[in-house]
Design a protein around this nucleic acid. Structure first.
Lengths: 245, 245
DNA sequence: CTTGGTCTTTGATGTATATCAACCGCCAAA
DNA sequence: TTTGGCGGTTGATATACATCAAAGACCAAG
């Protein structure tokens, strides 16, 4: 659990930059992939590239939801807090992923960088106007929302019904799969977040995360190269552990 | 936790009925509320009303996702199972609510009636064709998906970080609020599902659900009229308990 | 009225994970 | 080189909740 109030707002290091989308390396991972050249140009007009150092808040739960974002590099976490500071991280976002969907006028969660990160920031108002004109973009977004909903349900199964070991195994495997989906190496797995973040994502404490990792290591299914890099020695067994076999 | 395999498929009592949507009492609760009269007529053409007894499966995880549904009466639960039968209920659906959004070709969860229920069943293929023609409908659906995503995140907080008492208090209050949103009385609260379902929704056992309810009763914040009807004696205190004060 | 079944409640006990505490390794600042 | 701080690991203990067990409430079938 992290303290409230520290790093209340991210130190934006770079703001207002408007470089070309043509050279965007992760375009195929984002909703931009469904845009024509002319559409891209109009989207670019409501875009600003922003950059933050690690551990800085991008927006805060209950802030006015004026912007939508695409992560272009680095890692972002989303979380909600209880009154006494207990924290639940609801997701980690990597390059190409989208954040900012809100049901009301305000954000439903806080977004904070895990590593240094760059994001494309869009004016919600202006982007929504474009959605109205391009149904295919809205359709794509609905697809994204549907996928996230499925993922959220998987996470509910994990939080509600899995043991610590099953949670850790599931987490490591998902991180591996997502790295591969981004075209990176899925083994060894890189875990850019610290143990507190992992715990708050899995509904565990720091200590249990640490102990569970050493258990998996002692079983021989993983090796800890260092605290942020895990080698999957026996991926199949890890998979079995994740599903409770 | 419920046994697998029983009631594998719902006994559909009434199938193929195509009555008018004009007399639909819950129209305002559904996506139909955004349709014009002509649009309604076209939607009706791809609709069948289906009816099931309590405790019967509407569709099964991994079934082909050929249909979308609106609940018109009764209560439906959605759940996922682990290999050994552990179950996580991801949601309860009441009159007016929508189900069937899928990311792939198959459903991501099983849907089963809690009480006897009626649903409007739509051909996915045909409804999606209508979405393509009516962007405002797709927009509305995106709004629904965004709301569900927020709700899913709240549920993650509950499952990952709340105590049994906080979970129960949150659950009772949410059921009350949702009843009011449907125009029903929010106090006393009706809980149409049994203790096993509540447990599998909150990540608890039957026994803990029962014990926690008696704790809340002994504190004087609720009264158990019978196992399915709860009187909120001190709603404000219940609210405090739900948020961990 | 009795019987048997299902659901709920309550009690006794067990255990997975949290909590409290210490220590280690690493790195950056002094 | 030392010092202090942070993140991670490990150990001892506590506890919230699960598990195992039994009994009561209710209802439908006989």
């Amino acid at each position: 659990m992290e303290h409230l109030g520290t790093h209340r707002h991210g130190d934006r290091i770079l703001g207002g930059v408007r470089q070309s989308c043509g050279e965007c390396e992760i375009r195929d991972l984002t909703f931009c992939s469904v845009l024509t050249a002319e559409e891209m140009e109009r989207v670019r007009a409501c875009r600003t590239e922003v950059q933050f150092a690690a551990h800085h808040t991008i927006f805060h739960e209950d802030d006015e939801a004026d912007h939508l974002f695409n992560v272009t590099s680095g890692v972002v976490k989303l979380y909600k807090l209880l009154a006494d500071g207990r924290r639940q991280i609801t997701g980690f976002l990597f390059a190409g992923e989208f954040l900012g969907l809100a049901a009301n006028r305000t954000y439903a969660y806080t977004a904070e960088t895990v590593t240094a990160a760059k994001l494309c920031r869009f004016s919600r108002r202006r982007l929504v106007m474009l959605f109205d004109q391009w149904p295919h973009l809205e359709k794509h977004l609905l697809g994204i929302a549907a996928s996230e909903l499925i993922a959220a349900q998987d996470q509910m199964v994990l939080l509600g019904r899995k043991t610590a070991q099953e949670k850790m195994a599931s987490f490591i495997l998902k991180m591996s799969e997502r790295a591969e989906a981004r075209g990176q190496d899925g083994n060894p797995v890189t875990l850019p977040m610290n143990r507190a973040d992992i715990g708050d994502y899995l509904g565990l404490t720091i200590e249990t995360v640490s102990r569970t990792l050493t258990q998996l290591k002692n079983k021989g299914v993983i090796s800890l190269m260092d605290s942020g890099h895990i080698l999957l020695s026996r991926p199949q067994e890890l998979d079995d552990l994740a599903e409770g076999f």
